[in-house]
Design a binder for these strands. Sequence first.
DNA 1: CCTATAGTTGACGTATACGTCAACTATATC
DNA 2: GATATAGTTGACGTATACGTCAACTATAGG
Lengths: 134, 134
Amino acid sequence: MADQRYTIQQLAQEFGVTARALRFYEDKGLIAPARRGQTRVYSDRDRTRVRLVLRGQRLGFSLEECREIIDMYDPRQAGSARQLLRLCDKIREHRADLLQKLRDIEATLVTMGEVEAKCFAELLKSDVNVRKAG
Amino acid sequence: MADQRYTIQQLAQEFGVTARALRFYEDKGLIAPARRGQTRVYSDRDRTRVRLVLRGQRLGFSLEECREIIDMYDPRQAGSARQLLRLCDKIREHRADLLQKLRDIEATLVTMGEVEAKCFAELLKSDVNVRKAG
DNA sequence: CCTATAGTTGACGTATACGTCAACTATATC
DNA sequence: GATATAGTTGACGTATACGTCAACTATAGG
């Protein structure tokens, strides 16, 4: 199960992106697949990071922000207490950012519901009119 | 209270964007402030739309998508039943999109909590070590 | 009338996130 | 060995979302 390997096309198809995108993410330091010769060989860790990149992108983070966040999460050496405190600060920042997005989404969903309700009401009215006309 | 007017700078400062950005949004059809001579005069409606634009941007929508969504919400003539049905479809689309973002945010928050916990644990350990060393 | 301040319209520049194409390489198949 | 199939590295092109700057206008104050 573990230690699965993937070609660039396999990952690209799985995530619905192009090979070009994956190479671009590598250029930007988001992933670092192994090489067999000059050919890229992607591991499960790379796959996970790609998944996180796309998740970050859906949330409107730039690739640079994605890299920061993903590196944050990546199980690495703990670092000094100073580094750990900085990490906590960054988490707080990103959490605040996410909570803002949550509020934005909730507000938008509420408005959507209202518009939808008005829409249904209008449809009912026109339906009634159609019946009257019919 | 109602019928408030704003200069471009007032709106820009209120929302923390530049006048250039507001003119750009106008170029793209997101807002359409009135003119006094050649000078833009922003209404409360324009202000609301700007707010929605920024909200959309925070959620990772392009300006084009923002325009679509905002126009959707704008109280306008109801349109034909066919248009109303299309509106409902669009709402469903955008809702699905938002719900995906919600899942993304929740997943990210969970991971953040875990990383934070590990971080605290590490900090405690080093704190203990400091005490031992001290 | 002169100046300061705020606003306007181009026009070009820039960062991000890739798309696209050319040219080369490596491997497998006939 | 020729060809087909994946993969690779530049290099340039493109859409989005503005930043920046130049040149002009309009209006209020001294």
